[in-house]
Write a protein that binds this DNA or RNA. Structure first.
Lengths: 257, 257
DNA sequence: AGTCAAGAAAGTGTCGACACTATTGCGTTC
DNA sequence: GAACGCAATAGTGTCGACACTTTCTTGACT
């Protein structure tokens, strides 16, 4: 996917359409990805009303694909829709985030248990191999890579549970908390124990010790949460610069309409 | 994800799902409800390609709201979208159904446990009262009412867990299996032990006995699954009348594109 | 000065049209 | 007679337009 990141979330020049020739790939899909990116990077700020016309101009497409993308994002919980007033960026409040992490913990623990009960030995091997392939230099990668590798690890567990619904759920949750996880990884307090943790999970999987694995997962996620909360506060503070704190307050009334 | 037990079934429902987007009765919303109805009633058959023009004519609206509805249904797993080919009715295969029930079991057990840990005494009372209010004549109601009351009961547990994400998840799962649950309730083998089961759950909740409650839930759902599988087979047989069995086979290739 | 109303402006919800892609049906070739 | 292409048809993806709703602006009235 081509990454026109240009954060010019505002007004200004409508994107000129030199490429009026061919509409190769789904505009909807591109719109979806771009908007989601804006959301997770806070270019579109929590509580903010989303202006379809503005967005469509800045992406160089009509409002139709924009709306399709926004509807999708609404189903996934990124934005909310109030009739005749439009889409709003849903702010992941601190509690909201906690709830999501709790759900994630539930899904992951269940997946791990099912994997222990059902997976073939050679499938467990795949998990071990996956981890062994990335463990070297794991912590030296850029944040995005670490994140992707970590998500892949956990998704693989979900896959090995044999239940595609669990995979889908986890993927959806991941998409919603990815932004904060990235912030967290870059945050000075980033957990140095990741490697130990993953190795522990693999060991538990090999032993098929569901209890041990679930305990590790729960502890790990719990710890992540507490670390993350501070990171989130810092990030929000940065997004809503101090001088428009009043503005933030006003917006709060609107959020989650 | 926007969930509503439509028909509001007269049962003074607990406010469900506060974290969710509310939509008015615009044509998008009506289209969404109507199409979903077609889906759960097999008027639109599993594997079938959905013709937007035809649908828009039959609903008397343009394709735009139809597409919005279909996109939503795609996010919720009812239909799938293949670029440039359109939307297809996703067939809930027998295994697919099993996976969904498994997910439901996971969510419900987790919700029950959290409720035991966190809910106020008076909230547990709400659960007891809810059940006491409907227990008389529970089994004499029409299938739709039983279904709505049962869903309300379980959603209330999710609510009392204090985690809105769990409520949303459960609501979404309910929507997807509602059709089969209705069939199952009407099926001759319909479980007579429902009343005992619900009473048991309430008792466990009052005692805050998470283990007991989870055991009941798991057993109950497991039993439901086995009963349901036969009901599903019967239903599918009825939908795809014997004479176009070949047709069914052909469609299978397309399903879950 | 402050409040309220009417009109202007901005923005959403839906429509019909059109371009492009997939599918179907038909005639041609081997 | 079957495989192959080619034209015709059907269907999706996107667009620009317009009606209706919400929000902002302005100016009269108390």
């Amino acid at each position: 996917m081509t990454e026109r990141v240009e954060g010019d979330a505002g007004s200004g020049q409508p994107a000129m359409n030199e490429a009026e020739t061919r509409r190769s790939a789904d505009s909807s899909e591109r719109a979806y990805l771009t908007i989601r990116k804006h959301l997770v990077e806070f270019t579109l700020k929590p509580g903010e009303r989303i202006n379809e016309v503005q967005l469509s101009r800045s992406l160089g497409v009509s409002r139709t694909p924009i709306r399709e993308a926004l509807n999708r994002l609404a189903s996934e919980g990124f934005v909310s829709l109030t009739p005749n007033r439009g889409f709003f960026v849903r702010s992941l409040s601190t509690e909201g985030l906690l709830d999501l992490y709790e759900l994630r913990s539930i899904i992951e623990c269940a997946a791990f248990k099912l994997m222990c009960e059902r997976a073939e030995d050679r499938e467990i091997d795949r998990l071990r191999e996956y981890w062994e392939a990335i463990v070297d230099g794991y912590r030296d990668q850029p944040a995005d890579i670490i994140l992707a590798e970590d998500e892949g690890f956990h998704l693989l567990i979900a896959e090995l549970s044999g239940n595609p619904e669990l995979v889908a759920q986890l993927a959806s949750i991941n998409a919603r908390i990815r932004f904060i996880r990235r912030i967290q990884i870059e945050h000075p307090s980033h957990d140095k124990a990741q490697v130990t943790f993953h190795s522990g999970i693999v060991a538990a999987a090999v032993k098929r010790d569901a209890e041990e694995g679930m305990k590790l997962l729960r502890e790990h996620i719990e710890m992540t949460v507490s670390v993350t909360q501070q990171a989130l506060k810092d990030a929000l503070l940065k997004v809503f610069a101090p001088d428009n704190a009043a503005d933030l307050k006003r917006r709060r009334k609107v959020r989650d309409a």
